[in-house]
Design a protein around this nucleic acid. Structure first.
Length: 432
DNA sequence: TCTGGGGTCCTAGGACCC
DNA sequence: TCTGGGGTCCTAGGACCC
C-alpha cells in the first residue's frame, strides 16, 4: 500500500455511544425504572428493541418477539415499555447539543452514536477529555454514555465497546498512540464484534481460526480482501491505525426513502389493501417533502406474514413517474393501482411497502409539457396538510383514500408520556 | 487448432449497520 | 394470537456499444 499524506497525518476520533438508549430515555424521566429490568418494544409492541443491563442479564435477547419471553418477563417483574419515539428523538437532539459544545466537528452517526473529530486536541489529555464529555452529557441529559478514542473510526468503535464491557474503565477508553493498550483492546474483542463484521463473516473467519480482532488485524491482507472484498480490507487497515473512513459532518443526500410498516391485524380484502397503500403513500409523500426531494421511480410491494403457516404471497411493481413528485395523492393513486394488480384473494397480507428509488431535489425537477404536477394549488395543499399534521398531531388531516379509520396498526399499550414534546405531558416537580 | 478487446450500464444478490 | 423498520455499500455477470 502506498502511504499518502492522509495516512501519515494523525487523526483523533472519538465515538460517543449512549448506553441502552431507549431504556435510558425512559429512565431519565422515571426513577421507578432505575436498577430494574426494563425492555422497550417496537411498533405493534411486537419485538424487543432495547434492554436495560438487568434485562440483558436475564437472557432476554435483542430483536426477539416479546411473546416468546413472556415467562421470563412475568417471573422477573420485567418492566415493559412501548416505544416512544418523539421522546427519543428529542433526547437524541439534547445529547447532540451537548456534544457540539465540545467540538463543532461531529458526525451524527445514528440515533444514539456520534463521532467527534478531536484531532486538534492535545493527545496526552485525551483520557481526561473523554471523561469530561461523559460527565457533561450525563449531568445535562441523564443519559449515560461511553466514550472510545483512537486514530480511526474502527478503532474508536472498538475502544468504545471495550469501555462498555470492562467496568474498571468507567466508560472511557483512549487507545490513541498507545500500542500496548491498542493490542490489548484488539485481543479482548471478538472478531464478530468488529464494526463491519456481521454473522456471516464472523462464522467464516472463525472457521479459519481467526477469533479475535488482533488475529484479524494480522491476517494476510490479500486473503482478507479476497474473502471480504474491499470492505474487509478497510476494516483491517483501520485496525492498523490507517484511516479509511473520514468524518462526514454533513449527512449525504438520501438515495432511497421507504416506508413499510406491518399492520396489527392482517389484511384480507382488497379494500383494506387499498387503504393501506394510500396510508403508506401518505407517509412516503410526507417523508419526501420533509427531505425536500421528489421521486422519479418508485416500487410498491406486498407481503404476507413470513412466520405464519398461511399461504405466502410476495410481489412488487415498479413504475416511473412522468415527472418526479412528492405529492401524496399522485403517489397514492399509483400505489393503489399497483396493489390492485398484485392482490390475490385468499391471502392474509401483513405489509404494503412504498419505496422511492430515484430522488431529485424538489426545487429542480425536470418538467414535462404534458403533465402538470407542479400545479401551485396542489403544492400549497400539501404544505397546509403537513403544517396541520405537524402542529395538531399526525393524522389530523388525511387523504380520503386511507378510509375512515385506516387499517389497524400500532398498539402502544405501555407508552410513557411525551414528556418533552407535549405540553400536557410535562413532568411536574414536587418539593419533598 | 486458433473467432477481439475494452468500456459502460444495469441488475440481482449478499453483506452489513442501527 | 403475537416475529421491526429503516438504510448503505460492493461484486459478479449479462447486455450492449464501438
Amino acid at each position: 500500500m502506498i502511504a499518502t499524506v492522509e495516512h501519515i497525518r494523525k487523526f483523533i476520533f472519538a465515538l460517543v455511544d449512549c448506553k441502552n438508549f431507549y431504556v435510558s430515555c425512559e429512565r431519565a424521566f422515571n426513577s421507578r425504572l432505575w436498577k430494574k429490568p426494563v425492555i422497550v418494544l417496537g411498533n405493534n409492541d411486537g419485538i424487543i428493541i432495547a434492554r436495560s443491563d438487568e434485562a440483558k442479564q436475564l437472557g432476554i435477547p435483542m430483536g426477539f418477539p416479546v411473546f416468546l419471553v413472556r415467562k421470563i418477563i412475568k417471573d422477573n417483574d420485567v418492566i415493559v415499555k412501548s416505544a416512544n419515539f418523539p421522546l427519543y428523538f428529542n433526547m437524541r437532539d439534547r445529547v447532540r447539543g451537548i456534544l457540539s459544545e465540545f467540538t463543532p466537528h461531529l458526525e451524527k452517526y445514528s440515533i444514539d452514536e456520534c463521532f467527534l473529530d478531536l484531532t486538534a486536541f492535545p493527545p496526552d489529555q485525551l483520557d481526561s477529555y473523554g471523561r469530561q464529555i461523559k460527565e457533561m452529557v450525563e449531568r445535562c441529559t441523564g443519559i449515560p454514555v461511553q466514550v472510545g478514542i483512537a486514530e480511526t473510526k474502527c478503532l474508536a468503535k472498538l475502544a468504545n465497546k471495550v469501555a462498555k464491557k470492562k467496568p474498571e474503565l468507567k466508560g472511557v477508553l483512549s487507545v490513541y498512540g498507545n500500542l500496548r493498550w491498542r493490542e490489548r483492546a484488539l485481543e479482548v474483542t471478538d472478531v464478530g464484534d468488529l464494526w463491519g463484521v456481521g454473522p456471516a463473516y464472523a462464522t467464516m473467519l472463525k472457521s479459519n481460526g481467526i477469533n479475535n480482532a488482533l488475529q484479524f488485524r494480522d491476517a494476510p491482507e490479500h486473503w482478507v480482501q479476497k474473502k471480504m472484498t474491499i470492505m474487509g480490507a478497510r476494516i483491517q487497515a483501520e485496525l492498523k491505525a490507517i484511516k479509511c473512513h473520514s468524518l462526514s459532518e454533513l449527512p449525504e443526500p438520501k438515495k432511497m426513502i421507504g416506508t413499510a410498516a406491518g399492520v396489527g391485524v392482517l389484511m384480507e380484502t382488497l379494500e383494506e389493501m387499498l387503504q393501506e397503500a394510500a396510508a403508506r403513500a401518505e407517509e412516503e409523500g410526507w417523508k419526501l417533502r420533509k427531505e425536500n426531494v421528489c421521486a422519479k421511480e418508485m416500487v410498491v410491494w406486498v407481503s404476507t406474514n413470513p412466520f405464519s403457516a398461511d399461504p405466502k404471497h410476495n410481489d412488487a411493481r415498479e413504475f416511473t413517474l412522468p415527472v418526479a413528485t412528492n405529492n401524496t395523492s399522485v403517489i397514492a393513486k399509483l400505489a393503489q393501482a399497483c396493489v390492485k394488480e398484485m392482490y390475490k384473494n385468499g391471502h392474509r397480507y401483513k405489509r404494503v411497502g412504498v419505496h422511492a428509488l430515484t430522488l431529485e431535489p424538489a426545487n429542480c425537477v425536470q418538467g414535462d409539457i404534458f403533465v402538470d404536477y407542479e400545479d401551485p394549488k396542489k403544492v400549497t395543499l400539501m404544505r397546509v396538510m403537513d403544517q396541520l399534521n405537524q402542529e395538531r398531531g399526525t393524522g389530523t388531516v388525511r387523504i380520503a383514500a386511507t378510509g375512515p379509520t385506516g387499517v389497524s396498526r400500532t398498539l402502544f399499550q405501555n407508552q410513557s408520556p411525551h414528556y418533552t414534546s407535549r405540553w400536557s405531558d410535562l413532568p411536574i416537580a414536587r418539593a419533598c
